[in-house]
Nucleic acid binder design. Structure first.
Lengths: 198, 198, 198, 198
DNA sequence: CATGAATGAGTTTTCATTCAT
DNA sequence: AATGAATGAAAACTCATTCAT
């Protein structure tokens, strides 16, 4: 009935809302969205089940907020990638980019999976992911152009690079395979990316 | 307490089991594992809900069998990739590989997502995915060696190549972004992969 | 998800569905719609909570079916009122009508209240009540005309009569007041109704 | 365990309490007792949810106070009915009584329904209704006697009259039926009531 | 083997009431 | 007195799994 959600203004409330998001984030990451229930989230956040619905419309709403956290955590370092760069030395930039990508993935791999899988079933999740990729691609492209890189097919290059980095990060972070030497793989990816921008 | 699952010998039973797997496959792909219920699967398969438990231990068991179907569908064409190749002309092989990868992804993208997301939560799903990647990497590597390609760091090259192809396939199949020219991106990926094996 | 409701064909199922409606009827009548929960209905019907949703969309759906029962129980005897009448002797007909009305009310007074109050909040309940009143009015009018009664303002007369009978029935059934002699009141109502049709 | 309810002495408090009752009245009338929650009442009254429990024991307590308002609103004009009458001309009195009854019903029809339905479930509501009917019947009867009307079966006549008026008021106010000419129906009721007192 | 009705534990969500501030 | 965040019990409804037929 009361389809109203508190927009907390006071510090204590804001902290509480954030505790709930954090608890949701961790549980969704650990067990997936569908295997996590609101009672668990409330318990993990140290609040009652009722108050969860004071801050969020429903469980999905918690996910959407967790998505924002995730996006912030993962993409902030990547967007900042070229901030300290003054000259276009891809031999230096690429390894740094890979490090950042791997680190971001390492810190958030479970959530990544949870969100990625939901993106098939949830318009909004998909949309936000999409917007984000666009923002990253365009921001990095703009910075490269500002540093003097030619703009021909740049979006495609950057997008491909991001895609390769993510793909490698995923491999390394999960580290499934005994028969793969990940250092060597990293070298191959590095070379491929340097060639891409040559 | 018949925790026993029939191993169907007769043709009619085998067909029935396969219909259930197919129905499960389609529904899991369309709506995800958790948003599909067993009654729907049974209905789609044209059987009663009860009999599902005559062929499968539980819902997850259907998923596991669907996983096998998926694996077969996706990886058979990829494993067969080098079967008709007699000389190592990567300028020809790579575009073919990309086509196959994109096609496989296109045909099974929803199931890919469903399974991928479950792999975080389900040991066995993860394990089978892992085994499969290993098999593909090693089979393709073996074929390349047989065709005269040097074996140094070959697993890493092949694995990286697979990873890049999948990554591109995903991009192209989902086709999120207006600002990306996917033909150009395909060209970039093709060049990168040719360089990888040069 | 499965928004499907079984339409029971077999005798056992039909009996079960009727048991649920009966249990709902009794509980709604006794405690009102909002103070009755589905678990209670299930328990009273001797079934599990789950199966209730096999036969009914939701709690309101049980109410709607109970409404049909109510309508049948209350209005069947009233509709049949003039069936055995061959001549228009209101001195005989009116007392009979009052008896029937009081009896119907007596048998179903709680449900009457429950439904009546919901009619304000539920379109469909209101609609069915309305239809019913219309049917009763028109059926009785038609019978009177067939017996030779003039049709001028007949609907209004019949509707007024019904309304008076219900009103008296309510009074007598509840029997609130010590200071009222209900036999005398019945006499007054009888006279008023006879005069109405004179 | 402050189960104590403030009896407000100061003007501001009294106003606040009245605002809550008014808000409760309106919401109960509009949506029914069970579909109205205390937060809504508080909001509509412009107070906090907490303070509601400073003035009322519980939600039902608000209803009971709203009942008093209702009773006052509905029955005051009816009780005053014969105040200006000096001679017993029922041809004049009856139409006036019907007008008053219809008007009272029109102004409070939703609350009437809400309260009426609760009277089955709530002793106190039933009791107050009963007391009220008694008061109205007895007050009007006394006035009639003072004007020279014979007291034989007077309570029954008055009670019947009230009951008929209410019944007609309900019909006219809801105005369900296209096939009914309510002006004609009013005429019939008027005649019946005049005859009742003849 | 097959059916599909039945079970009941589990899930999301609401809301009257309390309580820290 | 007043606030409105917080509580937690209770409600509606779902669904994997079982079982009588």
């Amino acid at each position: 009935m009361a389809d109203v959600v508190r927009e907390p203004k006071q510090k204590r409330s804001i902290e509480k809302k954030e505790r709930i998001i954090k608890a949701g984030y961790d549980l969704f990451a650990e067990k997936g969205y569908f295997c996590t229930n609101t009672a668990e989230i409330a318990k993990a956040a140290g609040v009652s089940t009722g108050i969860v619905y004071g801050y969020f419309h429903d469980k999905r709403d918690i996910l959407l907020e967790a998505l924002d956290i995730y996006i912030h955590a993962v993409f902030t370092p990547i967007l900042a990638l070229l901030d300290d760069v003054t000259e276009l030395d891809f031999e230096k930039i690429i390894p740094l980019a890979i490090d950042r990508g791997v680190q971001a993935h390492r810190d958030n791999k479970e959530m990544h999976n949870t969100l990625h899988s939901l993106s098939t079933q949830d318009e909004l999740v998909l949309e936000r992911f999409s917007e984000l990729e666009q923002e990253v691609t365009q921001t990095l492209s703009k910075k490269l152009v500002a540093l003097g890189y030619p703009s021909l097919h740049l979006y495609e290059k950057v997008h491909t690079a991001i895609s390769f980095v993510q793909s490698f990060a995923h491999e390394e972070v999960y580290d499934h395979h005994d028969y793969i030497d990940y250092d060597e793989m990293r070298r191959l990816v590095t070379v491929a990316l340097i060639d891409l921008f040559r």
